[in-house]
Computed example of a mutant assay.
Amino acid sequence: MTVVHEAGRYETASADGVAIIVAPQESYGPTDRAQVAQFVQRGGTLIVASEDDRTNQFLSEIGVNARIDGALMRDEQNNYRNASLPVATEVSEHRYTEAVEGVTLNYGSAINTSVVPAQRGTEWQGQHLVNSSQFAYLDRNRNERLDDDEVLEARPVVTEESVGAGTVVVVSDASVFTNAMGERDGNRRLIENIVTDHDRVLLDYSHGPSLPPLMYALLVLRSSPFIQFFLSLTAIGGVVIWVWGPPSRRWLPARIRGRKTSPKHPGRLSKEELIEYLTTEHPEWEEKRLRRVTEAIIRRREQSADND
């Protein structure tokens, strides 16, 4: 799996791989469009996930006829928690939909395959992989209710069509590929089928939203053996310190720690060693105070021994 931050990576991408573009927010320039289109033309698989109809320009420019409607899909009967999270239950047989019983959208839309450019013929040459239930409708005015001019019917939410020697799959909701919605059984299975069907996966963020900091750090970590090695050493060092305690002054040279002998626990020092220890730890103390504290420690130690 490779994260792509510039479209130039498509030039060297394997035609046996799959590229996933999630919620493209910026327009692809002529050069970038050409690189993506060439990847598909020579046999690559491209997944475009978006509920925004502004993505249609990009789809048109790479030769895809399917169009994202852009209106919010709702389903009062088949949904997850509420009607704005419809569950598309009509699933066609396909390698990507194996064991997929339904795909859950999160404020998603539908895909329009009935409007096909005249220069490409009058019929759409593709396949509906997943359709909504027959109780779904497009809430164009977003008033959260079915109006007289809104129709209940099954609509495609995942489609596939051939472009050159390659394939383009359109998903009408970018959130299908997010962590939260990816936990839904059908969504997770759909993603797994797509990924495991290819040897290489490109995650294209070159024209989409920026990665969250933690996700970016994780991807950098996975792609850098040096950082992994460094963090492993750091973790091992942390375990050693946790088990054995932090480094003490007894690890330092005698000329640095100011005494020739390693300190022992005060409870095990003789009177002379205890005075030496306190002198090193508290050089500002006067001799009378050193001896007074030393005698107090010895008395307390002896009383403790008697109590035992």
Results as ranks from 00 to 15, higher is better:
T2R: 14
V4Q: 01
A7N: 03
A13P: 02
S14C: 06
V18K: 05
A23E: 13
S27L: 07
Y28G: 01
G29C: 08
P30V: 04
A34T: 10
Q38G: 05
L46Y: 02
S50H: 04
T55E: 01
F58M: 00
I62H: 03
N65T: 14
I68S: 03
D75G: 08
N78Y: 12
N79V: 01
V91E: 03
S92V: 05
E93F: 10
A99I: 13
T104K: 02
L105D: 01
V115A: 07
V116D: 00
V116T: 00
E123Y: 08
Y137M: 06
D139T: 11
R142A: 12
E144R: 15
E144H: 08
E150V: 00
L152Q: 09
V157H: 03
V157Y: 04
V158G: 01
E160T: 03
V170R: 00
D173T: 04
T178D: 11
G182S: 12
E183I: 15
G186I: 00
H198G: 05
H198A: 09
P209E: 10
L211P: 02
M215S: 11
M215Q: 13
L218R: 12
L219C: 11
L221R: 07
S223W: 10
F226K: 13
F229M: 07
V239T: 04
W242M: 12
P247Y: 05
S248P: 06
R250H: 10
R259Q: 12
P263A: 10
K264F: 11
R268L: 05
S270M: 11
L274M: 08
T279Q: 08
P283C: 06
E284W: 03
E287V: 13
E295F: 14
R301T: 07
Q303K: 13
Q303P: 15
S304N: 15
